[in-house]
Write a protein that binds this DNA or RNA. Structure first.
Lengths: 208, 208
DNA sequence: CGCTAACCTAGAACAAGTTTCAGAGTTGAT
DNA sequence: ATCAACTCTGAAACTTGTTCTAGGTTAGCG
């Protein structure tokens, strides 16, 4: 008798290395998702359609991603990885850390503008996610943090104050994206907000 | 032949003053919603149940609030008004504007902690809202801005820089709430983030 | 008072996310 | 090669948000 390792979901964290065909299925699913999202955004990602597009039974789709939210958050992870790679290639040129972070985020923002529907689907999923998706959302958050810290180009480890600033920048980044996606803020507005919050980085630690 | 003023929704902004019975219905609906949300959060607010609890037909519920999201955002407006009133009573005591804003937000945060499920429902609805809810979400945003500006206790009109800071504070506030509600950040963490972002207020306007 | 447009109700119907299940198909270890 | 344990498929069922319909009720107005 074998202890069954994971009652359901495939591909959860470290365990089960995924066979080649499984890896291929997973990839097909994520690809189909991004494609559908790229058209109509969140609503256009319909589980039955994703399943059909990726040549997988509905039940299988749910085995790989236990909900639509999980699916979209995984898509975001995927895209973020891609973006981190892209951003890394050309480090930002600003004088101060604040400028470099702002520049990097604006570059990311411009990338999202090219696929606003996809951005919509991913960001809405991210903020709508409940506790059952926490690990995945956390992973996205860590990835985002890594991008920002990268952009800061620190000599040493970040101070606690700097980490706080980074968290606040992330908050602002997500929320500003949402206001833009729902048409309540202009691109210029988002730019200002990002530049504003980035000032926190180079602030002397006078307070506390 | 009469031009029908509003094809559907009752109570939209300025027009139609709402009869007494209608006002009562609206109130019953919002009350039932807050009650259900107070138990299980977003998922526990089921349209059929709201309709039943408030003694209104499902179709009528949809006439008053065209979607679950509209309903919850309206609930948030309602609660925010209440909170603004409560907060106004005891102005914050901090020395600087930053301290006063942080104190006010933490007070609001503690109020939300008493009804975490209700907070969950309202905040999730707010960030999940799409363009069709923009006017209502904007109203919530204005109300929040008013609370923050109130807490700052300005002598004159806010400067553009201050308005930027307030927007960023709002972003942080919403996003921090979400991370707390989904269990990815502790209360202490939220406190630090709020205090961090509030530093933006008293910042000299060196940049720009 | 009696009309008419707008409003309300009960309930069916529809849409999309999620669950379930029986019957193949794969896989890995022996 | 064989068996047991997983995994995948196809299809139906279930849940909850949303829409639609037919008929009764209300409010303002001539």
């Amino acid at each position: 008798m074998v202890i069954k390792s994971e009652a359901g979901t495939v591909g959860t964290s470290p365990a089960s290395p995924l066979t080649e065909r499984q890896e291929a299925r997973r990839r097909r699913i994520l690809h189909a998702t991004a494609q559908l999202a790229g058209r109509g955004g969140f609503d256009a990602v319909q589980m039955r359609e994703v399943a059909e597009s990726s040549q997988v039974a509905l039940g299988t789709l749910y085995r790989y991603f236990p909900s639509k939210i999980h699916l979209l958050v995984a898509t975001m992870q995927d895209q973020l990885e891609h973006m981190h790679g892209t951003l890394r290639k050309k480090p930002p040129a600003g004088e101060t850390a604040a400028e470099r972070v702002a520049e990097t985020l604006m570059r990311a923002f411009r990338a999202l503008q090219r696929e606003p529907h996809l951005a919509d689907a991913m960001v809405r999923a991210l903020t709508f996610a409940d506790r059952s998706v926490s690990p995945e959302v956390d992973q996205v958050s860590r990835q985002t943090t890594a991008i920002i810290l990268d952009a800061m180009g620190l000599d040493q480890d970040p101070t606690p104050d700097q980490l706080s600033a980074v968290r606040v920048i992330e908050h602002t980044w997500h929320s500003a994206l949402i206001t833009w996606l729902s048409g309540r803020a202009s691109i210029a507005q988002v730019k200002i907000d990002i530049e504003t919050v980035c000032r926190l980085i180079d602030l002397p630690a006078e307070r506390r």
